[in-house]
């Protein structure tokens, strides 16, 4: 079937397979090498720290998204969920950081319950089910915040965005710990394996007596909670709650990270480390292009190209 000659033992499907599996790591490495040679002051601790801090909210949201996509779904409401938790946060800061944090995360739970119920109980398609809260969630956030940007003065919350432990920013630490937890969830727990099975063949999973509905609802709840946590951290970094712009286009960044990381949109597989590196790749790519004085719009087009390659590779592999 190959239309052009390739080295023996490396036919097209296997090449595609390898690309989907390891492409993202190779790309990140290549970018780092490129920048090490051609970009001044790129491979410095300061710059890398900045990049990691910036990518952390995307990573956190993308982890949840990866789980949802693993079940053959998608969650468009993550950006709005961030806005919602950002809007709720300042309302309860008077009681201290912990209560307001809990309220913000509770918003994520509620969003996840609604999404999950619409998908699993009502049987809506995920893209439609989550579109409701994509639109409604941000509206609700604006109502809650009265359409206003609110400055954050709680020092506990602000320190979440600025503190470091052993030179690593707290935000990055949280993202790293969450990535490890999600990886453990997927690989080591019954829930995680059931999630993958549901995504791989839902009818077979149902016939095998798996709690398909519970798994689906659980997945959307986890995704909602992660998004709301990302909203809290982003608010802390911004030092202001801004429900009108917080998390805008986040759903697209998260989906991009997941897809570029090698998780197929057809479900049945979740690549946690790939997702983290997918987010990193997009972040580094953007930074590289911007530092080389390419306009933001050019950066977006290059990103679009990467996404196309990732999707094409996934398609090629499936077509075997």
């Amino acid at each position: 079937m190959t239309s052009f000659a390739l080295p023996r033992g490396l036919d097209r499907p296997r090449l595609a397979d390898a690309l989907q599996r390891y492409g993202v790591y190779a790309a990140v490495l290549a970018l780092l090498v490129f920048n090490g040679i051609f970009t001044d002051h790129f491979l410095t601790a300061d710059n890398l720290r900045t990049q990691l801090v910036q990518v952390s909210p995307v990573v956190i949201v993308a982890l949840g998204m990866a789980l949802v996509i693993g079940t053959e779904g998608v969650d468009l409401s993550v950006g709005s969920t961030m806005a919602l938790s950002g809007a709720l946060l300042p309302l309860y800061l008077g009681y201290g950081l912990l209560p307001s944090l809990l309220v913000a995360l509770l918003a994520g739970v509620v969003v996840g319950l609604v999404n999950g119920s619409l998908v699993s109980l009502v049987g809506l398609q995920p893209i439609v089910a989550t579109l409701a809260l994509f639109v409604g969630g941000r509206g609700l956030a604006l109502v809650i915040a009265d359409g206003q940007l609110k400055q954050i003065e709680n020092t506990d919350l602000l320190s979440l965005g600025t503190d470091s432990v052993l030179g690593i920013p707290v935000v990055v630490l949280i993202a790293g710990v969450l990535a490890a937890m999600v990886a453990g969830l997927v690989q080591r727990t019954t829930f995680g394996r059931q999630l993958v099975a549901v995504g791989g063949n839902r009818r077979a999973a149902a016939l095998a007596g798996l709690p398909v509905r519970r798994v689906l609802i659980g997945v959307y709840v986890i995704c909602g909670v992660l998004a709301s946590l990302a909203g809290v951290l982003a608010t802390a970094r911004l030092t202001a709650s801004d429900p009108s712009s917080l998390g805008n286009l986040m759903e697209l960044s998260a989906i991009t990270a997941v897809v570029v990381g090698g998780t197929p949109l057809t479900g049945g597989s979740v690549r946690v480390l790939g997702t983290v590196f997918g987010a990193l790749l997009m972040q580094l790519l953007h930074a590289t292009l911007v530092t080389h004085d390419l306009h933001d719009s050019t950066a977006q087009m290059v990103q679009a190209g990467i996404i196309l390659v990732a999707v094409y590779v996934a398609r090629e592999r499936r077509a075997r």
Binding site: T190, R193, Q194, V196, A197, G200, N201, R203, A204, A205, L207, A208, G209, L210, G268, S269
Partner: peptide, 25 residues
Amino acid sequence: PEDRKAEGIVPGLSVRENIVLAALP
């Protein structure tokens, strides 16, 4: 089930995981 592909196997998972699927808990 009759339709092995549509209702039986989870093709992307390993032999091990397909065997233990129903017995996971």
